[in-house]
């Protein structure tokens, strides 16, 4: 398999996935009972004429095929439409929340990974001992708890020390802060939501890491490595870990998409203005345009995460590289 071919195929399948999601998005929203004009919250009591006017403005009175064409050509121009609620472009409505969510999820991922990998690697290395099952069961226990509950416990524990909501200190800008202060403030606000994500996910990652490592430890080359006189820790580090990074990476990137899509619960607990909260509000407002755009963005986020995993594969697996 050659490298260029691999990349082209991955890229093509990523694009195809996004395209399919866009079509499904279009179909789903049209297949739902009623349309934007009947469901429009502010329109509950308005007249039939006003509904027709709205439909015309939203383009809902045109034939489906034409609507589809308009939708696709707008998408291709990068136009996600306008929010029913605020009249601003959907992209402007969502870009900010998405930019808030990504660092939070990124930090949560880094935190959960660090914890999960350490627990998983030690468990595989010392399998069958207390160092195997004790930290593993503790992390598994955390991961079966609802993430909002973990969030609430963190609020109780750290309430006095760290900010418990929002994304930055609204008063900070009056004190003419340095660049470092702004960054520190952002990190403080990120800390608890990220910690909640990390704690909620580290158990699954520990389990993934452990089982991938234990699988690799059963391979023939491990016996050879032992016969060569390597210590068990060195075998884990030099043989089992590099060989199990492939399954670990895939699963982690897959969960990345999940976390972004599921960020709503954490964002609600910490009143964090991210994509989850924005979509929640869009549901409340029956803001179809924002919902449609949001779903597409989330799909794109998951597809991009998978694409990154594929790129990492190139780096990790010599069998693809050549």
């Amino acid at each position: 398999m050659n490298r260029g071919g691999y990349l082209v195929r991955r890229l093509a399948s990523a694009l195809a996935t996004v395209a399919a999601a866009a079509v499904i998005n279009f179909v789903l929203f049209r297949a739902a009972p009623g349309d934007a004009a009947t469901q429009y919250q502010m329109c509950r009591t308005c007249s039939a004429e006003f509904r027709d006017y709205l439909r015309a403005e939203l383009g809902l009175d045109r034939p489906l095929l034409e609507q589809f064409w308009l939708y696709v050509s707008a998408l291709l121009r990068g136009d996600l439409g306008h929010s029913f609620q605020t009249r601003r472009p959907v992209w402007d409505e969502l870009a900010g929340p998405l930019a808030n969510t990504l660092p939070m999820v990124g930090l949560g991922l880094a935190f959960g990974l660090a914890l999960g990998l350490v627990i998983g690697v030690v468990a595989a290395w010392r399998r069958g001992t207390a160092a195997d099952w004790a930290p593993l069961s503790a992390s598994m226990f955390l991961s079966v708890l609802p993430i909002q509950w973990i969030g609430l416990m963190l609020l109780l524990l750290f309430g006095g020390m760290l900010p418990t909501g929002g994304i930055s200190d609204p008063y900070l800008r009056f004190s003419d802060p340095s660049w470092w202060q702004v960054l520190g403030d952002r990190l403080e606000h990120l800390a608890l939501p990220s910690l909640a994500i990390g704690l909620a996910w580290c158990g699954s990652w520990a389990l993934i890491a452990r089982s991938a490592l234990v699988g690799a430890l059963g391979e023939d080359y491990i016996l050879t490595a032992r016969a060569k006189g390597l210590t068990s820790w060195r075998i884990v580090r030099r043989y089992a870990l590099p060989n199990s990074l492939l399954p670990i990476t895939t699963l982690i990137f897959l969960t990345f998409g999940y976390i972004v899509a599921g960020s709503l619960l954490v964002e609600t607990v910490f009143s964090y203005p991210g994509i989850g909260l924005a979509l929640y509000q869009a549901v409340q407002n029956r803001d179809y345009a924002v919902l449609q755009g949001g779903f597409l963005l989330l799909t794109a986020a998951i597809v991009v995460a998978n694409l990154l995993a594929d790129l990492l594969y190139l780096k990790l697996d010599p069998r693809i590289r050549t």
Binding site: E219, D220, Y221, T224, A225, R238, P242, N243, L316, R319
Partner: peptide
């Protein structure tokens, strides 16, 4: 003491 195992075809780690 060195050894060549049953199934030594897989004696090498694929990633090094």
């Amino acid at each position: 003491l060195a050894m060549v195992f049953q199934g030594a075809m897989n004696a090498f780690s694929p990633v090094a």
